[in-house]
């Protein structure tokens, strides 16, 4: 009985997870007539597959948009913001895990909450102030400007994850290193950091996901030079919604991150990701 229930649950959940993806993939191979005249599901039977959606977004004579440069921009911005967040975030997290900071009544927990609370503000209201800030710094429509702004949303995640991770690493490790003559900074870089790969991987992965998927800041703070992938795709949403093109570009834009799912799984199975969130 339990086994049947479990199998049913797993099947239903997997179908649910797959359904929108499959729908996006099929839609990306539909001609317009197979979309606007009612739902169609089965290729060849209900509609003749067409490459019109894919041709529109890939280089070639039928291309209406260039998604290659935006993909590169997304890579640069995501990598930059992830790197900065990881470096500064894990340093701060290590500090918060090992030392006691005090200022009036505020404790380490409050400082951690301060980091995390940076994620609370809805981004829309930050549009004007960030815009003004980057304008003054001459960073509008630059990679660096967008990287800095994204960092403010990503570093909190790193701090939140890495504090727990460092807490789980026995203090004896640091002490041993320091007995051997390291100062805390050397101890961190020589012994702690190598042990932190799983934690940094998880934190970095969340940074990549949230950075890659940001639309709002990219839309607000950049124009033509640093067009990112999601923004380029959303700009295809014209007066008439071309679902077949949007579906193709959606599939296109999630492929790099789905690759990431395999990487994460490898870490999980080797068992060394476990400590990452403890």
């Amino acid at each position: 009985m339990y086994k049947v229930l479990k199998a049913t649950f797993i099947t239903i959940w997997s179908l649910f997870v797959l359904f929108p993806i499959m729908w996006a993939i099929t839609t990306s191979f539909k001609p317009e007539s197979a979309v606007v005249n009612g739902a169609t599901f089965i290729p060849f039977l209900e509609f003749q597959p067409s490459l019109i959606g894919w041709k529109a977004i890939l280089p070639g004579p039928d291309s209406i948009t260039n998604l290659i440069t935006p993909t590169l921009n997304s890579f640069i911005v995501t990598a930059g913001a992830t790197a900065i967040s990881l470096i500064f975030g894990s340093l701060a997290a290590y500090g918060l895990s090992r030392f006691t900071y005090g200022w009036k009544n505020y404790s380490n927990a409050d400082i951690i909450f301060f980091f995390v609370s940076q994620r609370i503000m809805p981004p829309v209201v930050l549009a004007i102030p960030f815009f003004l800030l980057l304008k003054e710094l001459k960073l509008l429509d630059t990679h660096l400007g967008l990287i800095l702004v994204l960092t403010s949303g990503l570093m909190p995640i790193v701090v939140w994850l890495m504090v727990d991770f460092f807490n789980a690493l026995p203090r004896e490790i640091d002490e041993m290193a320091m007995l051997e003559g390291c100062n805390p900074i050397q101890a961190f870089f020589r012994t702690i950091l190598p042990l932190s790969k799983p934690g940094l991987t998880v934190a970095g992965m969340f940074c990549v996901i949230f950075g890659w998927n940001d639309v709002f800041f990219a839309l607000t703070l950049t124009a033509t030079k640093v067009l990112t992938l999601p923004v380029a795709v959303i700009a295809l949403n014209g007066t008439v919604t071309p679902y077949w093109i949007l579906a193709a570009s959606t599939v296109f834009s999630i492929i790099p991150l789905v690759g990431l799912a395999f990487v994460i799984e490898r870490f999980l199975s080797r068992g060394n990701l476990g400590g990452a969130v403890r």
């Binding site: 209406i64 948009t65 124009a223 033509t224 700009a235 295809l236 949403n237 014209g238 007066t239 008439v240």
Partner: peptide, 11 residues
């Protein structure tokens, strides 16, 4: 520097 609508309408 031109700001225009999404493709196709005007874009």
């Amino acid at each position: 520097r031109v700001l225009t609508h999404a493709i196709p309408n005007m874009g």
